[in-house]
């Protein structure tokens, strides 16, 4: 188990290293950091002075190594637009995004599990067809449009929830639905196919022959094995939600990391953009790593590969 974890960890670090190179290259090659510091209407002489003062005139590789060193020691940079350290700004915003992503996953799971299990128990029944139709619709609905429709229906017409903002749990309900619903279809499909496969296996037949109660067989013996691949998928979906939070947080005006990303792009805050891409990649890699470790723990066959 330790070797397995170490191997996974090492791989994650190499991937993160590549991500850092791409991020740095992307932001530096496409945008001039001197303009970001001095402002759009600075003269060429002023820009040159900024380049010398901030060290932007040195080779990119040198700047990259220096940046990577700072990032590795926990210093994500300084936002010249907000005049504050990037990390401080991010820390303020994390709770909103973390709550939103957690609730969204809860929405996805609480739709996907019952529908997936019921569909697997009754293949080709009306409930199976219904959940399949819901999945097809869910995957085609753009989340910004769905978010706006939720606002129109449940915040404006019925006034059950606030139109926007991030104060109190009530204001998280609509955004969590808007972000979570699109993750439900893939999870549901995986549970359905996994359950159908497991339900046909010998040990389930044995359990049935021994006269165990149906709900006991389904929930305790079958689901436990069918849920293994779902763990990885849920980690991937949670990662997608961090990326998708840009849209949903903007639609609902919530001050989380996603909206911060959009705002940083609007005001060409290069250091903040770089840091955000890095942090979101890192969280995604950690999630995948945790899912891998959990899977390796749950299923010893995986560790040996």
């Amino acid at each position: 188990m330790a070797t397995y974890v170490l191997k996974r960890l090492a791989l994650s670090f190499v991937v993160l290293f590549c991500v850092s190179v791409i991020t740095f290259a992307l932001v530096r090659l496409a945008g001039d950091p001197a303009v970001a510091v001095a402002g759009q209407d600075a003269t060429e002489a002023e820009l040159e002075a900024v380049r010398v003062a901030m060290g932007f005139n040195r080779p990119l590789a040198v700047q990259y190594v220096e940046w990577l060193g700072r990032v590795a020691s926990g210093d994500l940079g300084y936002s010249n637009i907000l005049r504050r350290p990037v990390l401080d700004v991010m820390v303020e915003r994390i709770p909103v995004t973390a709550t939103l992503a957690g609730l969204s996953l809860l929405v996805a799971v609480s739709v996907a599990f019952p529908l997936g299990i019921l569909s697997a128990l009754h293949p080709n029944s009306w409930i199976d067809r219904l959940s399949l139709s819901l999945a097809v619709v869910g995957q085609a609905l753009p989340n910004f449009f769905f978010g706006l429709m939720l606002i129109m229906a449940f915040a404006v017409t019925f006034r059950w929830f606030p139109v926007s903002g991030d104060s109190g749990l009530r204001s998280f309900v609509l955004p969590a639905i808007a972000l979570g619903y699109s993750s439900a279809p893939p999870i549901m499909r995986l549970i359905r196919s996994g359950m159908i496969e497991v339900l046909e296996s010998d040990y389930i037949r044995t359990a049935r022959a021994m006269g165990l109660a149906r709900h006991r067989i389904v929930l305790r013996h079958a689901l436990r094995n069918a849920v293994l691949p779902v763990v990885s998928l849920m980690a991937v979906q949670l990662g997608f939600m961090l990326s998708g939070s840009i849209i949903v947080e903007t639609v609902f005006s919530m001050n989380g990391l996603g909206r911060l990303g959009w705002q940083s792009i609007q005001r060409t805050d290069l250091e903040m953009m770089q840091a955000l891409v890095m942090v979101i990649s890192m969280v995604y890699l950690v999630l995948i790593l945790l899912a891998d470790i959990l899977n390796g723990y749950l299923d010893p066959r995986i560790r040996i590969r």
Partner: peptide, 23 residues
């Protein structure tokens, strides 16, 4: 497989926004 892993680690929406904003 490694390159696919790197690609998956990059947040699609954010990177797309950054590129379109800068280019």
């Amino acid at each position: 497989t490694f390159v696919v892993n790197v690609r998956l680690a990059l947040p699609t929406m954010l990177v797309a926004l950054v590129v379109v904003a800068l280019v």
